[in-house]
Design a protein around this nucleic acid. Structure first.
Lengths: 175, 175
DNA sequence: TTAATTTGGTTTTAAAATTAAACCATAATG
DNA sequence: CATTATGGTTTAATTTTAAAACCAAATTAA
């Protein structure tokens, strides 16, 4: 065992589109990565605990953790008392995923489980009040409406992205 | 070609945990499904347009669309004038994914692209105002704080879920 | 202090999923 | 009416995942 940090193999065919969704999927778009991060949000920090709680194969967990550390979503810290023993902690970049988890939990609870059958909830640690909804806020700080939001190209949009958005809107106009 | 609706093959090994994240991943946890739905949010409705805009292989698109129709995230409507020709439209269940997309776009724009380089943005269709943040709202309608939110078991939590959440919290206490 | 066990992986092999290309029947267009 | 586009299915090669075996270093128990 030479490599202290085993090199995370790059994905064979990542999405190459300049797109926020595509880039997110290159990092999290598989069936285990978000489940690993769920454990991190619960508080799990150890390889063995994450492995037992998710059921992921060890080689895959090893690979995914290396990738998440490389991408600075998690950091690996040595917690050994007489040698090396690792713990994985969420970084600021990782903790910033909370709204993504909140949105997923909210959707799944509403559309896959239904009221009264929610397996997990989010709550305020002090008041205990349950999280119930996400509100979109505009750049001026005022509330926006979900139904009024549309996707548009940003300052970093590539020609291909502009083309894609325009092409897709044509279908919309046809309706 | 007999089956008007080609049977969507079930995933070989779906997550079996009673968990909102796991259940979400069983439906969307691969590298293409959310990209297909991005196209649906842009307005694309046709098989060929989704295929060109994402670059997905046709057999996979066929499979994924069948699954999304089966799960009622999309609906397939016949728009042929002299025969059958299909369009795929978001259902209410599908449109309800907007907060998930908003959270993903927000995170990716902030942590993967950075200010001034956002490939896509969300904006109010009338005022043009840009979407800037997500605010968590409690069950009493008042604002909550992201940093104060914790995960807790809901009314539908299984014994295994309760166990997992408790186990993970032990790591947290150790810190 | 030593022995046994746990931790955090790596390696190997089999099974499953993805990719890319070829093919095809029906629909739409010129 | 001929040509092209649409919306797929099938096949074969490649890549990824799953599961089990294996291992060295760290920790715990005796």
């Amino acid at each position: 065992m030479q490599p202290l940090f085993s090199r995370s193999p790059a994905i064979a065919k990542p999405h190459t589109q300049t797109c926020s969704i595509a880039e997110f999927l290159n990092l999290f778009g598989d069936s285990w990565t978000l489940l690993i991060l769920r454990e991190a949000f619960y508080g799990a920090t150890r390889f063995s605990h994450i492995q037992k709680n998710t059921g992921i194969a060890k080689n895959l967990l090893s690979d995914r953790l290396a990738r998440l550390v490389e991408e600075e979503v998690l950091e690996r810290v040595n917690v050994g008392e007489r040698g090396t023993r690792y713990a994985y902690h969420l970084t600021e970049k990782g903790r910033a995923l909370m709204p993504v988890f909140a949105a997923i939990i909210q959707w799944s609870n509403t559309w896959q489980f239904g009221p009264g059958k929610e397996p997990i909830l989010l709550a305020d640690r002090n008041s205990g009040q349950h999280f119930a909804a996400l509100a979109p806020v505009g750049s001026d700080g005022h509330a926006l409406q979900w139904a009024e939001l549309i996707t548009e190209p940003g300052p970093g949009a590539s020609r291909a992205t502009l083309y894609r958005i325009n092409q897709s809107r044509k279908d919309l106009d046809e309706r």
